[in-house]
């Protein structure tokens, strides 16, 4: 074993990454008293499912879960559809003003979200979309980063494929949908994971745009129940975080194969 140190580094890295997660998982079965104790305990002394039953006992919990899932799924679907279309047009179709349009998209990427936050809120409110699902979803349905990612990927695909399809009489829509798009699967998987994560974890926008509790998403509800003015309910927070993380893990495992494949493909080029 000449390269034992590589494994050592890998194991250390794994511990550094996994330890907080394990702490969270174990902590979700502890009482607040045990969580705050010094010196801390790793394994719960008296494991309790009190945090979980309190969490699921909150009347609206299934509702928050539904809201989060709906918003994240629609936003992800929207991004996959629109970003790939726009990215394709910007990379492969020749039309007047293509470069300025791309520059414009890139420009919006460079404006920090916090700067546009309040104007965006005013805009959405004036459109009468405050406290509605469209209000939660629309602003994120297409992202400049997604467009950029898809454009770069499309640009790397050979034009010959399109020409061959044209010669064979495929329609322009067919070229996009049946020839080019399937080739971008790795990019789509990456975009899908990133968008889903972003939407799933988004806190500030849902907090501000949702005016009644029935439109709250999981992160907002979690913050609501676990933080007080003077005290934190850490056990509940840990349990909530575990519940929030599980769907993300499932999504990642589902897409992960495509992402690694994507990395392999780009490696060959």
């Amino acid at each position: 074993m000449r390269r034992w140190w590589i494994y050592l580094i890998a194991v250390l890295g794994l511990i550094a990454v996994a330890a907080p997660f394990v702490w969270m998982l174990l902590g979700s079965f502890k009482t607040d008293g045990e969580l705050l104790r010094v010196p801390p305990t790793w394994l719960p002394e008296a494991p309790t499912n009190g945090n979980y039953s309190e969490l699921f006992g909150k009347a609206n919990f299934p509702r928050y879960f539904f809201n989060s899932t709906l918003v994240a799924l629609v936003v992800t679907a929207g991004n996959l559809t629109f970003c790939s279309m726009l990215g394709y047009a910007l990379a492969k179709l020749n039309f007047k003003g293509r470069t300025p349009l791309f520059v414009l998209v890139m420009g919006t990427l460079m404006v920090p979200g916090m700067v546009t936050f309040v104007p965006l809120f005013v805009l959405v409110t004036n459109a009468g979309l405050a406290n509605s699902y469209p209000g939660l979803i629309l602003p994120f349905l297409v992202s400049p980063f997604g467009v950029f990612l898809m454009r770069q990927f499309f640009a790397g695909l050979p034009d010959d494929l399109m020409d061959a399809a044209r010669v064979d009489g495929t329609s322009e829509l067919g070229i996009f949908g049946r020839i080019m798009l399937p080739l971008t699967r790795p990019a789509l998987a990456t975009l899908g994971i990133l968008t889903f994560l972003g939407s799933w974890n988004n806190f500030l926008w849902p907090l501000v745009i949702a005016q009644t509790e029935d439109k709250y998403t999981l992160p907002v509800a979690l913050a609501l129940y676990s933080t007080g003015q003077n005290a934190q309910h850490y056990g509940l927070l840990m349990a909530g975080a575990v519940v929030v993380v599980v769907p993300v893990l499932v999504i990642f495992l589902a897409f992960q194969r495509h992402v690694t494949k994507g990395i392999a493909i780009t490696g060959i080029k």
């Binding site: 520059v103 420009g107 919006t108 460079m110 404006v111």
Partner: peptide, 9 residues
């Protein structure tokens, strides 16, 4: 171009 846009925004 991006920088100019950012400044305007």
């Amino acid at each position: 171009g991006g920088a100019a846009l950012t400044a305007t925004a």
